[in-house]
């Protein structure tokens, strides 16, 4: 499989949550969450609706206009999770998503991911 095909596969089938959040620093929370959806060609209306839906679920809907550097570690990781979930991938690969979080935030995030799994029906593979 060549690089282009791998990129297309990642875009359409997979979602990623990284240990170090890896948000795009110049985009606000709303744009970060909708980033993958934009790459996949969703309409503005669809993106706005879905971003709000996922952000509400992850309790970051009041931070939509903030830049990543204005958020706490826990909030940034929730944005990363929202970005991975928003475009409804078949599977999410989560690479130690709680490694940079304190125990309290880790617990909250894991609960939220479990809830996503139940409500959105998305499979999450933790490493």
């Amino acid at each position: 499989m060549d690089e282009e095909s791998r990129t297309t596969l990642r875009l359409n089938e997979l979602g990623f949550v990284f240990q170090a959040y890896n948000l795009i620093p110049v985009l606000n929370v709303e744009e970060n969450i909708g980033f993958v959806m934009r790459l996949r060609g969703f309409s503005d209306k669809e993106i706005k609706q879905r971003v709000l839906e996922v952000a509400t679920l992850l309790e970051i809907d009041n931070k939509l206009k903030s830049l990543p550097n204005a958020l706490s570690g826990g909030q940034q990781q929730r944005v990363a999770v929202a970005r991975a979930v928003a475009a409804k991938p078949k599977i999410i690969l989560a690479d130690e998503p709680t490694a940079n979080l304190d125990s309290n935030n880790s617990k909250i995030l894991m609960n939220m991911m479990r809830e996503l799994n139940e409500k959105e029906g998305v499979s999450i593979l933790f490493a």
């Binding site: 297309t8 875009l11 980033f35 993958v36 790459l39």
Partner: peptide
């Protein structure tokens, strides 16, 4: 990050 989440090199 962009490439890993699916952004093509052309963009």
């Amino acid at each position: 990050i962009m490439i890993s989440v699916g952004m093509h090199y052309k963009y």
